[in-house]
């Protein structure tokens, strides 16, 4: 089938994609190219003096112990957020799938957190966990537990992990629920007839059939944990105490916006850009292949 038949005019298809291409070029390729250029420059914030320094910014950033520390924080943070958000999302989805009475209310309530802006969500967590003004935080302190995320690395990291995962649970829940509902009941029933217990049915039948969903969510969650958690960290800890919650994306902000180190910040953006490219490539390659059973 020839595609040309759809467009009698040779120019029309190009014109139709032109607005989209213009948007992509202006808002994506151009800034990305600018970041690459900026990464090779030593420049004052106003752009009055600029000097081409090859890869000096790269070597400065990549050998900086604080950058490597931030990478470590990001990995711990990402693994914890993903594990927490996906396991809780799956458990809730399994229960929502079983529940009959009040299921709609239950589902609606679980989906809500996703609609809340990260900064607002973080403010809510602040009112729960702040050692002085938070309800739970105050109770902990009164009962002799020295809870203080403003001055304790582990507490701070734990808090941002919980706050970041909480929001993503909803997203995972929706997809897991949809995945569960698309599994033909006859398969599960057949297994039950053959004498498989509920645990065996889950691990031998349901979980493998969910694997395309799980894999998709894994990629989405990685991207979320790496790139979409700025708001939570900014509102709760601003990367502190010390550098305990400074993830890679937060460091890009601190170095670029607060510290006005444009070269260093651009280098970090370029590195993150490469990470996204790799993740997207992986996603397209494997998801396309595995999504059809």
């Amino acid at each position: 089938m020839s595609r040309r038949a759809i467009f009698p005019n040779r120019l029309l298809p190009y014109l139709l994609v032109a607005p989209q291409m213009a948007v992509v070029l202006v808002f994506f390729y151009w800034p990305a190219a600018q970041a690459v250029v900026q990464a090779t420059l030593r420049q004052d914030p106003f752009g009055l003096h600029s000097q081409f320094v090859w890869f000096e910014n790269f070597s400065r950033v990549l050998t900086n112990p604080f950058y490597l520390g931030s990478l470590r924080v990001t990995l711990v943070f990402a693994v914890a957020v993903i594990a927490l958000a996906m396991s809780v999302g799956l458990v809730l989805a399994i229960h929502a799938d079983r529940q009959v009475r009040g299921a709609t209310i239950y589902k609606t309530l679980l989906i809500w957190p996703y609609a809340i802006a990260p900064a607002v969500a973080a403010a809510l967590w602040l009112f729960i966990f702040h050692p002085t003004i938070g309800m739970l935080g105050r109770t902990l302190v009164r009962n002799g537990i020295n809870w203080d995320y403003t001055l304790n690395d582990q507490h701070a990291l734990l808090l941002v992990i919980i706050a970041a995962a909480w929001r993503q649970v909803s997203y995972n829940f929706i997809f897991f629920l949809a995945g569960l509902q698309s599994i033909p009941p006859s398969l599960v029933e057949a297994a039950a007839v053959d004498g498989a217990g509920s645990r065996q049915r889950f691990w031998k039948i349901i979980f493998p059939l969910l694997s395309p969903t799980t894999f998709f969510l894994l990629i989405v969650n990685i991207i979320y944990a790496f790139f979409d958690t700025f708001g939570v960290i900014h509102a709760l800890t601003r990367g502190g105490p010390g550098k305990a919650t400074e993830t890679l994306i937060y460091k890009v902000y601190t170095d670029g916006v607060i510290n006005l180190d444009l070269g260093g910040s651009a280098v970090q953006s370029v590195v993150l850009l490469a990470v996204v490219i790799v993740l997207t490539a992986v996603q397209f390659r494997y998801i396309e292949r595995k999504v059809h059973y």
């Binding site: 120019l11 014109l15 202006v26």
Partner: peptide, 12 residues
């Protein structure tokens, strides 16, 4: 359609 698209593209 082509005209509208053109206008959109140009203004963008």
């Amino acid at each position: 359609i082509a005209l509208i698209t053109l206008v959109l593209a140009v203004t963008a």
